[in-house]
Structure formats: structure tokens, C-alpha cells
């Protein structure tokens, strides 16, 4: 549906011929292609997801001191554990980028390899996080203990749930790439997956700063 461009001097013909829409300077020459529309829509989803996290951040910020006599952030958080998690997740994002590069070159083997590495690093992150959760619960600092811990487990746990969903998505995409090859729609999905995976990094950087760094300030 690509329309031609005419100069305003041809205006008398307006309304009687086709393909005479002006270029209005905003690229409004008809519907955009799917390769633009699909990632754009997915970006909007990611933005709405960030709004969801912002509500959880707001809850955490307003309840962070409501420890109800229980343990506070200084006693519970350990920067070295968080460092491992952060490194695993950031590296995983880099590997996801490599997978997209390989997919652009239509290299099946390396796409799969980098996706596996991405997933393994994601699993490492999840494992460390769940171990931290298990430890906190075992010493009586579970989410039922205080409002502070409720909001902590919800905020960090929601991020963890997103990572889990991302891992399921990576598995599905690996199977799809394997079974169907690099068709255009599979390529768009891989791109959306990488947007999602990078967005989880951005959220994690905010969690790292607001929850763990500020929480362990003396």
C-alpha cells in the first residue's frame, strides 16, 4: 500500500485520483511494516510492565522501615550474594545479544548455543535468588514476618517470576528456531524476547540500587 508523493501544485486533482497523498513529513505514508509494528507493540507491553514494577517499588519504599520489630535490611542483605546475581544476569543479557547477532546471520547452531548460555546464566541467577529466599525464610525472616519483608519478597519475587517466564520463553523459542528455522515472524519474536530480557536487567539495576545498595548503607 505504498502511495506516491505529489507536490501541492497538483492539488486540483485531490479527491479524484489515487496515490496523491502528500508526504506530511512525519513518515505518514500508510501503515508501517510488521517488523516495526510488532516490536513497537511489545515495547509498550514492556513499558506497562515497568509501571507495574514502579507500583511495587513504591510499596517497598513506603514499607521499608515497617519491620514490626523483626529483622531489617542491614541484618538480612549480603552484598556479595547480590554481586553474583547481578553479574550472572548482566552476562546473560550480553549472551542474549550475541544470540540475536547469530540469528541475524541465520546461524542456527550459534543462535541455539548463545540462547542456552543465556538460559543457564538466568538459571544461576534464579538459583542464587531462591537460595537467598530460602535462607531468609529459614531464619524466620519470611514474607509473613513484617510489611517490610512482604514488600521485599513481592518486589524481588516478581522480578524472579519474570525471569522464570523469560526462561520458559527462551525454551520455546529454541524449539521454534530448531523446528521452523529463521522465518520472519520467528525473527520478530526473538527480537521481542531480547527486549524483554534486557528490560529485566533494567529492573534489576533498580532493585540492586534501591533495595540492596541503599538497604546495606550503614
Amino acid at each position: 500500500m505504498e502511495a506516491g508523493i505529489v507536490s501541492p501544485t497538483e492539488a486540483p486533482a485531490i479527491g479524484l485520483t489515487h496515490g496523491s497523498s502528500e508526504d506530511t513529513g512525519l513518515g505518514n505514508r500508510g501503515p508501517q511494516s510488521k517488523s516495526i509494528v510488532v516490536p513497537y507493540g511489545f515495547w509498550l507491553f514492556v513499558l506497562s510492565d515497568m509501571v507495574l514494577f514502579s507500583a511495587l517499588f513504591a510499596s517497598y519504599a513506603s514499607l521499608a522501615r515497617a519491620t514490626a520489630g523483626g529483622p531489617g535490611s542491614l541484618q538480612l542483605f549480603d552484598r556479595s550474594t547480590v554481586a553474583v546475581e547481578t553479574i550472572a544476569l548482566l552476562l546473560s543479557s550480553f549472551m542474549c545479544g550475541l544470540a540475536i547477532v547469530a540469528a541475524k546471520r541465520k546461524n542456527l547452531l550459534w543462535t541455539e548455543v548463545w540462547l542456552v548460555v543465556t538460559a543457564v546464566l538466568g538459571l544461576v541467577f534464579l538459583f542464587v535468588e531462591l537460595r537467598e529466599f530460602a535462607h531468609m525464610i529459614s531464619i524466620g525472616a519470611g514474607p509473613q514476618r513484617s510489611a517490610f519483608l512482604s514488600s521485599f519478597f513481592t518486589l524481588v519475587g516478581c522480578h524472579g517470576a519474570h525471569v522464570t517466564a523469560g526462561l520458559m520463553w527462551i525454551g520455546t523459542m529454541m524449539a521454534q528456531v530448531w523446528a521452523k528455522g529463521f522465518q520472519p515472524h520467528i525473527g520478530r519474536r526473538l527480537l521481542c524476547l531480547s527486549i524483554f530480557w534486557h528490560a529485566l536487567d533494567i529492573i534489576w539495576v533498580a532493585i540492586f540500587t534501591i533495595v540492596y545498595l541503599i538497604g546495606t548503607l550503614p
Binding site: A55, L63, A66, T67, A68, Q144, A147, S150, S151, F153
Partner: peptide, 26 residues
Amino acid sequence: PVLTATYAELMLDRYLGFHFFTNDGG
């Protein structure tokens, strides 16, 4: 999304005994 987060927090209070909006536990 804010509504989703709010209802999720209330559900956690109701189903798992969290303390977002309760009178006790801060």
C-alpha cells in the same frame, strides 16, 4: 498495571498472610 500490582498485593495478604495492608505486622 498499578491496579494489577495493588490487587496482587491484596491477594498475597489474603492467600499467603503477607502484611501489605493489614493492621498488624507494620
